[in-house]
Structures are given as C-alpha cells and as structure tokens.
Amino acid sequence: MIIRKPQAARRVSRFRMAVVDYNLRYEGCTLGFGRLAGYFPGIFNDPGSGPRVVATSHPVESKSPSLRTVRVTRFEIFGGLTVWHQGRDRTPSPPKVRQMLALLLVQSNRVVHVDTIIDELWDTEPPASAVTTTQTYVYQLRKLIGGAGLVGSSGELLVTQSPGYLLRVDPDQVDETAFRARVARGRGLLAHGRHEEASALLREALAGWVGSPLSNVTRGRLLSAHVVHLEELRIAALMAWVEAQFALGRHRDLIADLRALVTEHPLNEWFHGRLIEALGRAGRRSEALLAYQTLRTTLADELGLDPSAEIQALQRTVLRSA
C-alpha cells in the first residue's frame, strides 16, 4: 500500500527555510529581514519580540536540513534600539550606555569624537568627570560586546581611534541602512518612470518602519536631530509611494491610506491634496469637497492660513466636474 503525502505537504517539502538574520536553515518557507505589513506601508502590527522577518515565496536550497547558526549581529533602531545576536536580545540596559551605543550606531563606520559623545550624553552641562565617565561607559559597552560575542564587519565591533570611537558594522547589519538604500533606489526608479518597481521597493522600505526610531533611548540634541531627519525621510518615501500609485492608476485603492495619512499628518497639505484628488477622480465629489473644507478649517484654526493655491485649484477642478 502506498501512502501519499497530502498535496499541501508535498508543496511545502519543495522549499527550505532560511532565516536571513541569523542564517538558520530548516524545513519550511523562506524568511528574510523586515516584517509582513498591510498594503498601506504606514500601518503595522505590534512588532512583538524577536527579530523582524518577512516571508518570501522563492525556494532556497539547503545544504543540510539540520538547524545551524552563524554568528551574526543585527542592530535595529525602528521601534526602539535593539541588538540581536544569534536570536537573543543583547541590548544594553544602562540608559547612558544605550544612548552612547545609539550615537555610535547612527554614525557607524565613522569616528565619533569624545567631545561629541559628551555633548550628546550631557548637552551643555557635562560633569567634571565627563571624560572619565565616558571611558567607563565605553568599558561597559566593550564588556557587553565581549560577553555576548557581538561582531562587526571585521570581527572587532567597537574600535578606539583618535580622537574617539568607531562602531564598525556592515550595511546589512543595520535596519536604518537598509531603509535608506531602499528609499533612495525607489525614488530613483520613480524618477525614471519605473512606477511598478518603485512602488514595490518603497512599500518594502516603509514596511521596515515598525515604530518611532530609538523610542527606548534617552535622546540628546544629536540623536533627536537624527530622529527628526529619519521621520522626514519617511514622509518623503510615503509621498514617492503615493506618486507611484497615482501613476499606476490606483487612486481608488489609495483613498483609505490617504485618509490615514492626513489623520497622522493633519498639517501636511500635500497629503490632503492627494486625498482630494483621489476622491475627485473616483467620482466621490462631495467627499472631495468635504476633505477640502476639513483642511481649510484645520489650517485656519491652527495657523491662521488658507490652503495653498494648488489645493484651491483642486477644489475648483472638483466643483467644475460637478
């Protein structure tokens, strides 16, 4: 008697699982860096615990079905600073050590001057022992690195190099680096009219944004400025993604996403304009005019301003189409 596997089981057996973050291989499907998100890239599920992963459908050959682990250290800043090594959370607990690591990480592969570290940790009121205390924090960070076996791009992670310190990592060890690269490439594709590819890549980039950067880190002036910069980059990526969707004729699909965006960014006229335009193109003229009135009221109440000439022109276009 021949016992046949169920069809689903036969399909699964054709694939191998590879957890890219830690190079773990076993039977199943393919997992990689990031996380699954809905079609709208600005809304995500609770990140939960453990390294972020997304599923892909292509098969991966495994040299061995047995589980194996390769030493890889990953750094995540979105949704809070987290250091992963071999599947375990190795994030420093002491607030100042965590803050210093965050500064070195966002300036990775560049020497960070001791004075810059002191400015970040204590702003304009450093203690008399600031240099010695900074050295103590460096020692604590080295102790964590050594105890956990954390590794950088050339083995040694934290390097002393006059006049300060350098965190030596590969680009694919840091989620921010991946985010920046995807956004830059996505915007480049958009500029060259490759809208489908741009949309997919920008959506992938935005899916990696699972929360406010460095949300679990005490931030001084330098880290605060860096977070503001990243938030602006996210807005630029969202705008590029919306442009790509419009170019592909998906304005109807965008309406729910744009409503969420104008709620998140109530003073961003560009998002409001795209919502008005999408509603108008979809034949929902009354809702488009209501969206215009909502923006007009918000700007008047908050800033004492009228909508821009571009937004007013959109309103006139909707009125003429009525």
Results as ranks from 00 to 15, higher is better:
residue 210 V to E: 13
residue 4 R to I: 09
residue 283 G to P: 08
residue 220 G to R: 05
residue 257 D to Q: 08
residue 21 D to L: 07
residue 141 L to T: 07
residue 299 L to M: 09
residue 239 M to E: 15
residue 58 H to I: 04
residue 321 S to E: 07
residue 262 V to H: 04
residue 105 L to Q: 08
residue 180 R to D: 11
residue 209 W to V: 15
residue 167 L to Q: 05
residue 97 V to N: 00
residue 313 A to H: 09
residue 169 V to Y: 11
residue 169 V to Q: 05
residue 10 R to S: 07
residue 263 T to G: 08
residue 35 R to C: 02
residue 63 K to S: 13
residue 264 E to A: 13
residue 71 R to G: 05
residue 93 S to L: 04
residue 3 I to W: 07
residue 153 S to Y: 07
residue 158 L to V: 12
residue 95 P to R: 09
residue 143 K to P: 06
residue 287 E to W: 02
residue 207 A to N: 11
residue 9 A to Y: 08
residue 172 D to E: 01
residue 236 A to H: 15
residue 37 A to R: 13
residue 115 D to C: 01
residue 200 A to D: 04
residue 22 Y to V: 03
residue 32 G to R: 12
residue 112 V to N: 11
residue 123 D to S: 13
residue 71 R to C: 00
residue 293 Q to E: 15
residue 318 V to R: 00
residue 79 G to C: 09
residue 78 F to K: 14
residue 108 S to A: 14
residue 77 I to W: 01
residue 142 R to D: 05
residue 242 V to L: 02
residue 177 T to M: 09
residue 67 L to K: 10
residue 41 P to S: 05
residue 263 T to Y: 13
residue 181 A to W: 05
residue 320 R to Q: 10
residue 90 R to F: 07
residue 259 R to A: 06
residue 257 D to N: 10
residue 29 C to V: 14
residue 52 R to L: 09
residue 202 L to G: 00
residue 188 G to V: 07
residue 153 S to T: 11
residue 201 L to G: 02
residue 284 R to H: 03
residue 143 K to Y: 07
residue 103 L to S: 06
residue 190 L to C: 06
residue 51 P to D: 00
residue 254 L to R: 01
residue 184 A to V: 12
residue 199 S to W: 00
residue 197 E to K: 14
residue 295 L to W: 12
residue 117 I to C: 12
residue 287 E to T: 04
residue 35 R to K: 14
residue 248 L to N: 02
residue 20 V to G: 01
residue 172 D to R: 06
residue 263 T to S: 15
residue 138 V to A: 10
residue 104 L to N: 06
residue 203 R to N: 08
residue 108 S to L: 10
residue 32 G to L: 00
residue 90 R to Q: 14
residue 280 G to Q: 09
residue 145 I to D: 09
residue 11 R to S: 05
residue 255 I to S: 01
residue 201 L to M: 05
residue 235 I to L: 10
residue 259 R to L: 03
residue 321 S to I: 02
residue 260 A to S: 13
residue 174 V to F: 11
residue 306 D to P: 03
residue 182 R to P: 05
residue 154 S to E: 15
residue 48 G to S: 09
residue 244 A to L: 04
residue 43 I to T: 12
residue 40 F to T: 11
residue 44 F to P: 01
residue 50 G to V: 00
residue 284 R to Q: 12
residue 304 G to V: 07
residue 173 Q to W: 05
residue 132 T to G: 10
residue 104 L to H: 06
residue 304 G to N: 09
residue 5 K to T: 10
residue 224 S to F: 08
residue 59 P to I: 12
residue 57 S to G: 13
residue 303 L to M: 08
residue 302 E to I: 04
residue 5 K to G: 02
residue 295 L to G: 07
residue 108 S to E: 11
residue 60 V to I: 15
residue 6 P to Q: 08
residue 105 L to P: 10
residue 177 T to H: 03
residue 75 F to M: 09
residue 250 R to D: 06
residue 195 H to L: 04
residue 154 S to K: 11
